[in-house]
Design a protein around this nucleic acid. Structure first.
Lengths: 349, 349
DNA sequence: AAGATCATGAGGAACGTACCTCAGAAATGA
DNA sequence: TCATTTCTGAGGTACGTTCCTCATGATCTT
């Protein structure tokens, strides 16, 4: 049988109350006694039963996920994963609170964040760009003891406890290697992004250029085309670039916008096959891979993101260590052949 | 507040005992009453608190992992992941029992399996080839109500509850796409495997050939070289093939044996760069990727394998549904650029 | 209609931990 | 040494469930 607090008390020759004080780091125990209890704990190999502990605390975890209200497919898949995770988490005394903020309004975001504390929330997973206002809001939450993780987009200069997401520079490098090798020769590559103001886009482009220059000097990477979320813009610019008789052999999509691009491409009816590589495995990207309109997608598993964020927030709240290996989000390479089966729950797009 | 069994009892106008009988599907309740209770459950949105339930049951999960006693790096990394998972699981009332069996001795394996039942074990994760003896042993365990998952290597014709691992045909196809595209032209490819009797090797080779023939007809895939676990054999055959002045441009490793191969390759000092693609991200494969001796590794996350097996076994034991999306093991493509950082725990090689 | 069987209620103990109170012991200061 | 402060012990209740016993009322047999 596993040892319990009672066994520890006996072993250490103290009372249950004292063991409890030591375990929960409450004051009123002499250093010597603390040591005796800790020795007993080690000697017996005691591990606290978190389930019983949480039951006794009658602690329920209220975790907030704060996301932009953009309708992008990436956010949509994130929401789906969140929904599923919420249902699964319910039986583990964890409640997920969803908050959306207007994408371009840092003040609204700050207001939402500051309201969280009053709402008795134990932790926040935040997907937002880092602005001074947000930094202040996070500092305030942090001072109130709230666990905070940055989701998808890191907030390196804040008091966030953890970043749940991928290294976007490495993701860009990965895309570059595939692009370079798939091209297998000289040519030009168009890079398309929503806006170069987004941290992810900048980092990916940086990593992409790095590898391209080093390993594939024969490939010319053109300036980033910014779509600003408007498909027409994207379509037009791409069409223009392509029709200028240049030697474009590949397209690199820094972010979302797969739909608009694939429409543009099918309209143009290119005589020649292009190498198309993008990020985020949205339903459209999945379809594009299946039909061969895209060659590879660099992605992060949305289900993992959500579950990892929840685990980290819980661990922070419980003050227990996390399993670094498990919380490391992989840069996944998806091609048609290793496309994961669509599950009913859709949780793992 | 979340509703509890007491709330359900009040809502349904029955006693706590009756609610409990319904919840745990125990006899002695009229169909009409069962319905009334279930209605109340739905009306209040009751979710059973599994932590409290398990506490009350004072159930501890003893889960056995049965693995071959081969010293292969893959099994080693699996063991490391298992060790870590065991430490994490301890606080969730789960105990991991490890059993090794002589790799070539199905009788010994069957003996170990049949001993499990007496050992009060709730579930087994088994990594073993499917033989008639093993099939019988599994049937017997199944009849005793034990949860069984096949690990890494599927046991399709048995009563296993679930398979935790990847689709090896798809993994082979994935390798083929990368090989074909990285080669970027005609040439020959050597395929190296430990033994073609292993299900995985056969399936991977099958998938590899499928795609090669369909998409890259200009590439000639040579017959599989079998190493039978002996590095010298492998080294010699590879050296021979290469020195025969043929047009070998790529090497596909069906399984382990990265060390022997990389030694062979460095000895031969090939004038020309080869495309080397293999399976399983062992420490050697990792080193080979880092130094550029390998181009890509198709792998499955060992940490995920173990955790998924544990979750599935627990779910089966608790008779609760599993999250299909979470339990789907990905076919991961790893190149140098997206090589996951080595974590201290090494859990996720 | 009497006995047998079944469905239900009431109540309680247990799981392992947290957290509270109060009394008394030990250490500390003057 | 006495008063004061600081530790410690004993005991209890609670968390949400499981599972047990016993009693009673309802329903079925023949």
């Amino acid at each position: 049988m596993r040892p319990t607090v009672i066994d520890i008390a006996k072993e250490a020759g103290v009372s249950l109350a004292t063991v409890d004080r030591v375990l929960n780091e409450r004051p009123g125990v002499r250093a010597k006694t603390v040591q005796a209890v800790q020795d007993a704990i080690i000697r017996l190999g005691y591990v606290r039963d978190v389930a019983a502990a949480n039951l006794a605390r009658s602690r329920t975890y209220r975790m907030a996920f704060v996301l932009p209200d953009t309708e992008s497919q990436f956010v949509q898949t994130l929401l789906e994963a969140l929904d599923l995770a919420g249902r699964m988490a319910a039986s583990a005394r964890t409640e997920i609170i969803l908050r959306r903020f207007p994408a371009e309004d840092p003040h609204a975001l700050a207001a939402i964040l500051s309201r969280l504390a009053a709402d008795d929330i134990a932790g926040v997973a935040l997907m937002a760009p880092e602005t001074p206002i947000v930094r202040d809001a996070i500092r305030s939450l942090h001072q109130q003891g709230m666990a905070i993780v940055a989701l998808v987009s890191d907030l390196p200069n804040t008091e966030r406890d953890h970043f749940v997401g991928i290294d976007n520079v490495a993701a860009g490098r990965t895309a570059a290697v595939l692009m370079g090798r798939f091209l297998a020769g000289p040519g030009q590559v168009i890079v398309v992004g929503q806006s170069m103001l987004l941290r992810e886009s900048i980092e990916r482009r940086f990593g992409f250029d790095q590898v391209m220059m080093r390993d594939f000097p024969q490939v010319e990477v053109l300036q980033t085309v910014e779509s600003h979320g408007r498909p027409q813009v994207l379509r037009q610019i791409v069409a223009e670039t392509l029709s200028h008789g240049s030697n474009v052999k590949g397209i690199y999509l820094l972010g979302v916008g797969h739909r608009a691009l694939s429409e543009a491409l099918s309209e143009l009816d290119l005589g020649q096959r292009m190498v198309v590589i993008g990020h985020e495995l949205t339903p459209h990207a999945r379809a594009a891979l299946e039909t061969g309109r895209m060659d590879a997608v660099i992605t992060q598993n949305v289900g993992h993101l959500v579950r990892s964020a929840l685990r980290v927030l819980r661990a922070r709240t419980d003050r227990v260590p996390i399993d670094e290996g498990q919380e490391q989000i992989r840069i996944e390479i998806v091609i048609r052949e290793n496309l994961p089966a669509r599950t009913e729950s859709q949780s793992d797009l």
